[in-house]
Design a binder for these strands. Structure first.
Lengths: 167, 167
DNA sequence: CCAAATTAGAAAGTTTACTTATCATTTCGA
DNA sequence: TCGAAATGATAAGTAAACTTTCTAATTTGG
């Protein structure tokens, strides 16, 4: 390797790939489109999430954190309630909660009043994990937008909120 | 159902979910965080992509479109080249291209000069599909950001580009 | 009160996206 | 030139995010 630093990002080789053979931004249409940029932004966000939480001894995605949060604030909520709160479909939330249960952070029981429903609560470990996670996740939000100034971050978040509002 | 319109979005019931039992924005921490908002934005973008391309008789994701674009502009590119151009890892691109080959839009052959590499080209069907797709995908970009004004869209895209720049 | 509609959850299948590992090939350095 | 390093691709495994379909339970309407 001769000492030269390799520039990798998420398994992607960011070198000069073929010494400029590829016509990256000359004629390609997709690279400046909203869909492509949003996809890359999400990719970036996900990787920052994973890196920071893993460094703290967890392995938590933004979905898992949001689900923990929803259950913490609403103990006894069912899976459909979590799905509605964080805007997901029930099968996905079911699998996310499976993993949280496997990790011992959430406990699931059949509801007394509606035997279709599974009521959810954080375990003591889940409560403790959330307490430890919260400052880490708060801080990592800044890392996601580290290229932006404070004012740009504020503007950006307002625009995202506007874009996803009441679809 | 008694005639009332149900409000679904991606399988998520957007009704009053339990008549306000859940404390949505009172104490939840995650909902205003960048990671959560970006995830929901990506979810939205993906759904708009799928809806618009499906309506036109295709079923194309933003990754598949970007890959088609990269191959169209760089005929004979290999999979690693595509991965580098659109910022993805090679296994994912390999599977994306598998599906494009299955759909008959891309052909893959072993390179003459490097037998490890698979050189890629659009088939005539792939060329035709891209020509038909391009105006649809262009238009759909506006639908993704339909809640934003023209100026807001410009500002938003500039901020996203800045956020994902040179990681 | 009972049949029909609705809802909660799960199961199966698909696509995307990643990590790690492996194999084959090519290139580089001693 | 020969062995080591690097590279292209694939395979296996995990997680997320859906769709569709199914069952079980509960409401609701007649």
């Amino acid at each position: 390797m001769s000492g030269a630093q390799k520039r990798f990002c998420a398994g992607v080789w960011l070198g000069d790939f073929g010494a400029g053979i590829w016509r990256r931004d000359l004629e390609m249409q997709a690279l400046d489109m909203a869909g492509h940029l949003i996809r890359r932004l999400h990719q970036h966000s996900t990787q920052v999430y994973a890196a920071h939480t893993r460094e703290a001894g967890f392995d938590i995605t933004s979905v898992q954190f949001a689900a923990l949060d929803a259950i913490r604030v609403n103990p006894g909520i069912d899976q459909a309630g979590v799905a509605a709160l964080i805007a997901y479909d029930r099968p996905t939330i079911g699998e996310v909660i499976n993993r949280l249960v496997t990790k011992g952070l959430v406990e699931r029981a059949i509801s007394d009043t509606d035997r279709r429903a599974r009521v959810l609560r954080l375990t003591p470990e889940g409560e403790a994990a959330f307490e430890r996670l919260l400052p880490i996740v708060r801080k990592l939000q800044e890392a996601i937008l580290e290229n932006l100034t404070r004012d740009e971050r504020t503007a950006f978040l307002a625009l995202v909120k506007a874009a996803i509002r009441e679809r």
